[in-house]
Amino acid sequence: MSINSLLENYLYFSNPRNFNDPFDCITNREKYILKGSPGIVKHREDIGVCCFSTINDNPLMWGHYANSYTGFCIKFDSKLLRNNHIQIKSHISYLKDYMPTNSDFDLAKEQIKQLEIEEDFKETTLVALGMLNAYCWKYYDWKYEKEFRAIAINTDEFERKLKFDKENLLEVYIGHRMKIVDPNYYNLLIYILKNEYPTVKIYEVRPHHLIVKLEFEEI
């Protein structure tokens, strides 16, 4: 999340092509996928993913995603994702072995097809299952992220910037090196939080001086 997204209270839904994992959302297979129908091509252009973590105290996350403790982390209320623009909300599965097709997935599809339910609902369920299979897994080495993600199919509807209610923002954690490396950025962040999000709790995050553990001190 950026200063601008705080000022304008929006979440950015990235195209998976811009992720740091080249296998995420099967982007490594995209050159074959884009040979499909115009509908498939448009889907790959318009899909957007917003990634979260269920933890805030993993040193690897602070090193990788908060620019070595010069960035910040935000805790949101779960109501944040109650939005009609979001089609999929799911925890990520971390797999050691992944195959484009597998017997468990095929069996699940066949079982759904046999259910005595309305055809429209059946088709929606099959599409959702296919999306989960394609977009909600990562290689096992990424398991430290403990990721939860929201997926929007048509980001054209909101230009990838999905507005959220300010009361959904609960806490902000700021890396201890931000005020040293970039004091102007730090002061701007504090100013925005105090004025735009007056009820939010703010914490500074720093490494414990004796053991491998992060400490959180309320500002």
Rank of each mutant, 00 (worst) to 15 (best):
I3G: 05
I3M: 03
S5M: 07
L7P: 04
N9P: 12
N9Q: 13
Y10I: 03
S14F: 00
S14Y: 05
N15M: 00
R17H: 07
F19D: 13
F23W: 08
T27G: 00
Y32H: 14
S37W: 11
I40V: 13
K42P: 02
R44L: 14
E45D: 13
G48D: 00
G48K: 08
V49K: 01
C50Y: 04
F52I: 08
L60H: 12
N67H: 13
S68F: 07
F72V: 09
F72A: 15
C73P: 01
C73H: 10
L81I: 11
R82G: 15
N83D: 15
H85Q: 13
S90R: 02
K96M: 12
T101N: 13
N102Y: 00
N102T: 09
D106G: 07
A108Q: 04
K109Q: 14
D120T: 09
F121M: 04
A128W: 08
Y135H: 05
Y135D: 06
D141I: 04
D141F: 12
K143S: 05
E147H: 11
A150G: 03
I153F: 10
N154Q: 11
T155D: 13
E157S: 14
E159G: 08
K161D: 01
K163W: 00
K166A: 11
E167Q: 13
H176C: 15
V181A: 06
D182P: 09
D182E: 11
N184Q: 13
Y185G: 02
Y186S: 10
Y186P: 03
L189D: 03
K194C: 11
P198A: 12
T199N: 06
K201Q: 04
H209A: 05
L210Q: 06
V212H: 06
E215W: 00
F216C: 09
E218R: 02
I219T: 09
